[in-house]
Design a binder for these strands. Sequence first.
RNA 1: GCCCCCUUCGUCUAGUGGCCCAGGACAUCGGAUUCUCAGUCCGAAGGCAGGGGUUCGACUCCCCUAGGGGGUACCA
Length: 518
Amino acid sequence: MIRTRFAPSPTGYLHIGGVRTALFCWLFAKKSGGKFILRIDDTDQQRNVEQSLRPILDGLRWLGIDWDEGPEVGGPYAPYYQSQRLEQHRAAVERLLATGAAYHDYATPEELQAEREMAQREKRSFVYSRRFMAETAEQQARFEAEGRRPVVRLKMPREGKLVIDDLVRGQVEFDWAQEQDHVVQRTDGSCLYHLASVVDDHDLAITHVIRAEEHLSNTPRQVFIARSLGYELPEYAHLPYVAEPGSKNKLSKRKLAKYLKNRDFAQRFEHGRKIAQTVGLDTTPEAFNPVIVDFYRQVGYLPEAIINYLALLGWSLDDKTEHFTRQELLESFSLDRVIKSPASFDPAKLWAFQDRHMQQLPIEQKVAMVLPYLQKAQLVTAPPPSNVEPKLATILQAAGDRIKTAGDILEYDYFFLPDDRLHYDDKAFDKRIRKADAAGLLAKFKNQLAAAEPFDTETLEKLMHEFVASEGIKIGRIIHAVRVAATGRSIGLGLFDTLAILGKPSCLRRIDRALERL
RNA sequence: GCCCCCUUCGUCUAGUGGCCCAGGACAUCGGAUUCUCAGUCCGAAGGCAGGGGUUCGACUCCCCUAGGGGGUACCA
């Protein structure tokens, strides 16, 4: 049984790169009927773990990356919080000490630093002299008499090689002599991450450690710990990290300002910000940032699109397949087709996936996605009046692929605004009505509309063509004017759909209002 | 400094010695279609980091250089 884990720290947000790692772990486990475990590495978090974890848990759930064991779902290997496993970590350190794989060290930081600098000056790698190593009680007593306090260090091998068969990188070799005698337990008795991680992975029966490549260099010390503890080694797979748009630096939440200089990034951000603001969300970089998964949830992206995009960020099936459902991913994913080099996050490409997945979404589901945005913008009450959902379905039908994220519905607020609260875009009004000298035509066309029966798309289209023919004008002269009069804007859905959805009374009132405005 | 990893169009990638004067996708730029917008269709431009080998033949194998990343913490 394959068991993989994702082990986030409770940082308060779910990073897009972290999601990619979680996704690969999830896919790998699930495709073979294994288990995906969520473990919380909260050893250095003092407070508010619950609160800092919330966005991570919610984000993963929203994306459909569900965990078989972990917070809120429990499991046979509980607890799944690293902070609740301290006893096991300490016990492991004791065993390391007992078998001679680790020792008490009484060197001061300054003494160590001096050795390090010496090594650097001599252009060789630093290896601790073990001058303050204490392996017996007598040695310990002597150092303690000098007022020194110990840490526990690994007694790493000083010869030979370690060969790791990494599932994405192939064979990677390390010289043991290059490794440090890393600290595993601090003076205050607390344990360090690598020790805790190895012990927890073993205790949770993790078979495959799939994680970011920043841990590749850390693997030797972890292998040493695991071996010394008599553990069977897990398989390792080190994933490349997700890089910034247009560079190979690691994607970072803190560099939003820099990323916004990238045109695509800025466009997607602006699009999202407009939506977030109209529904009253916090749009500070802390809360609203395209590097964080919440951004996409708030703007109304589809989890399926994000999953599809992220899966292809560092993995591919072949030279042409790009569109994957979750099920298809589960069927075709494999670690050996994971790329070794970092991949830049490209918001424009994510957008293209969003567009495609949205186009394929059935109307009823779009209605359900979009409705909350109208409610948050106070254009529709909650629960909605009975006519709203059918109306929304019609709008979405007419909108076709113009609505690319759920929040885009807010572009069409004019379908929900009372006629007397319709806002006119001044530029559009000026150009298409005032300068176009369209008042007379509008008034005439309004009379035609008043007589239209039934008031549906086909009838209105026919009406318009007859009108244009009888007036001997180009259709452009009237059609844009009508659009601006009815919606306040110069762009939108097909005009006849728009008018039909608005209904006759609204259309007439809005044209009147536009004429009065002149 | 030392160790490890990585390097194909702007970006994501296909490519495991001849199928490649390198294929697809996003983005870009043209053109067509439409009442605007979105889309759709057609087309264009754009790349094997550099240098040495090996080979009849190299994007593919080897070496070197350069660039990027990670580790080298009583961080995770």
